[in-house]
Write a protein that binds this DNA or RNA. Structure first.
Lengths: 270, 270
DNA sequence: GCTGGACCCTCCCCCGGGGGGAGCGTGCAC
DNA sequence: GTGCACGCTCCCCCCGGGGGAGGGTCCAGC
């Protein structure tokens, strides 16, 4: 140690609380390069001034930020850009927390011993032309996407003839990515920005109403699924949701009502 | 479909919102066995009554419960045992959330442009005999372990001569598992349950005080590490923390004071 | 100067919880 | 009878490391 604070990997490990293995991996990944590497022996040498960087990396990894994103953050010297990138990840954590809350609520309902009976209605829906926003989205981006889409719809649809609704491709749930469409019925669907007219096909829907938070809506999906199969029907096409009463109407989640409609067709016994 | 709701893997996938791939994997793992498998073709067939189970699994996986634990939960028919196992995992989620909060706080401090100067004192500490509880613990169990240990110490140490403190092996931070010791100084260390007398060796400590929540204590660790190296010292042995003012004393986190001491020895220039 | 032990190196395989895709067999509707 | 959606297995890939083998290096004590 030349007094100036040159450290072996072991010393640096003790001071940064990162394992030796992990430090080597970060070197390989180009994430945290040692201040110098001995050509002859391959020994890595770190500088004391790298401890803060190591700590930032450590904290980001504790927040499950992928190494590639960590790299972008620590590479960007500009504190502004840094702050933005970090803020992005904190937002991602927020939405993940939201998802976790939903899963917990849903789990509680699932584990309740006596599920209340489910009202399901079979309803023929004619083809309708509506104002819509549609995109290919990832499952965990849906909430953010929804917020943007509904705002855009609200801005350009001035004479809605019904509550908003959405169509969600099955792949969205099964593969974590798929097509999503949010619409608002109106007599004269405008075309503006992402909003454009779409004609929803006529379908026969098995419809039920989910009451309460969206977090545990999957439970209702499951119950509806059981009903559908139990009544000798099969699923055809994307799920439809209709936001009869939602957060836009009242802050009380227990009053929210979401209609879930699954397009079905009758199957004969096999 | 014999009217009774026998489903192919694809149908079951649509109804359960689990991907076909994932269903096959759950079969292989013995987690969700199809109701029947065709010997000739290998086709899996699921029953409608398996949808609720699939949903429970789905929710648990969203909470990052490992498949092996999910298996234990869904296998245990007894709702009581189920509820207990699930509650355990919810507690784990809680503590993870705590850790996340800590990392966020720590990150904010790290990204602040101007770190306040650090007061470090070099202090020779004589050997002391104290009442202690010690264990090998995992890094993410430390909080829970601490709670139990401090309660046990409080229960049997009636005449403490100082505030509590802890010794934490470096491996705990670097490898995620290591030795932890919580102590309370007293004239006559009792022996009761996990509490027993321990003689802490004499060391020279580089000591600084961390003010505020424990969540961002790693930042102070890093600053202390930099100081240690910058002063031509090297680290020897487990970190010592002394809980001068903590949650047991006041509910206001900004008043908490934790002394961090790192055993050091002087190294000559290399 | 030698030796032992702590420390360092690279390399390969392992984990969980899937995804992508190849290559091939099946069931059903037209 | 034929197309094609759906089913099957098998293998390799992803991330962020951990375990351990096999071997080189540094340094203190003798």
């Amino acid at each position: 140690m030349h007094g100036g604070g040159v450290l072996t990997i072991g010393e640096f490990s003790r001071l940064s609380h990162l394992s030796v293995r992990t430090l080597r991996r970060y070197h390989d990944a180009g994430l945290l390069e040692p201040a110098s590497v001995d050509d002859a022996t391959g020994y890595r040498h770190y500088g004391v001034d790298q401890i803060p960087t190591a700590q930032v990396i450590h904290r980001l990894r504790e927040l499950d930020v992928p190494l590639s994103d960590v790299q972008r953050i620590v590479r960007s010297g500009d504190p502004e850009i840094r702050a933005t990138l970090v803020a992005d990840h904190l937002r991602r954590l927020e939405s993940e927390l939201e998802r976790t809350r939903g899963a917990v609520a849903s789990l509680r309902r699932l584990l309740e011993p006596e599920p209340p009976p489910l009202d399901v209605e079979l309803r023929a829906v004619p083809a309708t032309t509506v104002a819509a926003v549609e995109d290919d989205v990832a499952y965990d981006e849906v909430l953010a996407w929804y917020a943007g889409a509904i705002a855009e719809l609200d801005a350009v649809v001035h004479d809605p003839t019904g509550v908003p609704g959405g169509l969600y491709d099955n792949a969205l749930f099964e593969d974590g990515r798929g097509h999503a469409l949010l619409y608002r019925p109106t007599a004269h669907p405008p075309r503006s920005g992402r909003v454009h007219p779409v004609t929803l096909p006529a379908v026969e829907l098995a419809v039920t109403t989910h009451v309460g938070e969206h977090g545990d809506i999957e439970v209702t999906y499951g119950e509806l699924g059981t009903w559908v199969v139990g009544n000798a029907l099969a699923v055809a096409g994307p799920v439809r949701e209709t936001y009869v009463v939602g957060p836009r109407d009242t802050a009380d989640p227990s009053a929210w009502r979401t209609e879930i409609g699954w397009p079905v067709f009758r199957v004969g016994p096999r």
